[in-house]
Design a protein around this nucleic acid. Structure first.
Length: 305
DNA sequence: TTCGACACATACGT
DNA sequence: GACGTATGTGTCGA
């Protein structure tokens, strides 16, 4: 017997996605059955907007001791849809995609890479920032408790799972939604290279171009841990961990929020040579509903959340 | 009821 | 247009 005795016709039911090139299937959710074609480009949808950047620790520019204002940008590009009552809904079993970048107000890229930065730690001491990094975290909005996220490879079940990476990052502009959509599942090397130019800064190239090296370099660039540095942190194939509890009671859904954090990576104050992240600033989503695996999550009318 | 595992189906990229 | 992939989701069984 092949496989484990499945009845065929496993998936009878109309797909939401139209077979035409139309991208206009604005699913209002009210009457269409919830069944989405697995590779539909319509799965790429801009999700809820993030809040304004919230400051946690101040950042200063070396030398002139100027305080700089970080701006964190983030966008969800796949995996959330707006429900009828205006809440944003994701599915536990499905992937979401999110991109993020940061910049400093009044600092263009050139000014950034010619400077060093520091912050003030919780004891009031000045601490040099070795480099910046972007992290994605999820929380339960009731109690602010962190929820784990996991990332799959394109092989999904057949590949490994990881926590989402923390991206060492330099300032960058957020690419538009179409660009993020176009960046997924590329194998063609020319296309991959073109995308890498958007999403990464190559320090080696930069050093070559300006006849620099890591010894001559006095800027913050030299402390980044590798030559490939994100301009844009791209989190793809992310899911909430399968063990999250979706409901707080039999009836009430729990809400979750996604947070993008700008971190300053500094020397650990207790262990020389060790590094430690300091939360500098962050943005977050409005409360999100995550629908679980229960069949009720996949019915035509989602009155049972 | 929920979860891991496996399966089916289908649009996308080459 | 064929072929291999990636991924939403149906289902079984613990």
């Amino acid at each position: 017997m092949l496989g484990g005795g499945h009845d065929q016709n496993g998936g009878a039911g109309e797909l939401i996605d139209s077979p035409t090139t139309s991208t206009s299937t604005t699913n209002t959710g009210s009457s269409t059955p919830r069944k989405v074609a697995p590779r539909s480009s319509d799965l790429f949808r801009v999700g809820p907007h993030f809040t304004m950047t919230r400051q946690h620790q101040r950042i200063y520019c070396h030398g002139i001791d100027l305080e700089v204002q970080p701006i964190v940008q983030a966008r969800i590009d796949r995996g959330f849809e707006m429900g009828d009552n205006g809440t944003w809904i994701g599915y536990k079993r499905n992937y979401f995609t999110l991109v993020s970048s940061f910049m400093f107000d009044n600092f263009n890229f050139d000014r950034f890479i010619h400077n060093k930065f520091y912050t003030i730690n919780d004891k009031g001491f000045r601490v040099d920032i070795n480099y910046f990094a972007i992290r994605l975290v999820a929380k339960c909005s009731d109690d602010d408790v962190s929820i784990s996220l996991i990332q799959h490879t394109a092989k999904r079940d057949k590949g490994p799972q990881f926590p989402p990476p923390i991206y060492p990052a330099v300032p960058g502009n957020l690419p538009d939604h179409e660009t993020v959509k176009a960046s997924c599942n590329k194998r063609n090397n020319n296309k991959i290279d073109a995308m890498n130019k958007i999403f990464y800064f190559d320090r080696g190239n930069y050093y070559n171009e300006y006849n620099l090296n890591s010894i001559k370099d006095e800027s913050c660039l030299r402390n980044y841990p590798s030559d490939s540095i994100a301009r844009v942190a791209r989190f793809e194939r992310i899911q909430f961990t399968s063990s999250i509890r979706i409901k707080s009671s039999n009836i009430n859904s729990r809400f979750f929020t996604l947070h993008v954090e700008l971190l300053g990576i500094v020397e650990d104050e207790h262990q020389m040579g060790q590094i430690q992240p300091i939360l500098l600033s962050s943005v977050e989503t409005p409360p999100l509903i995550i629908r679980g695996r229960s069949p009720s999550s996949y019915q035509k009318v989602g009155y049972r959340i």
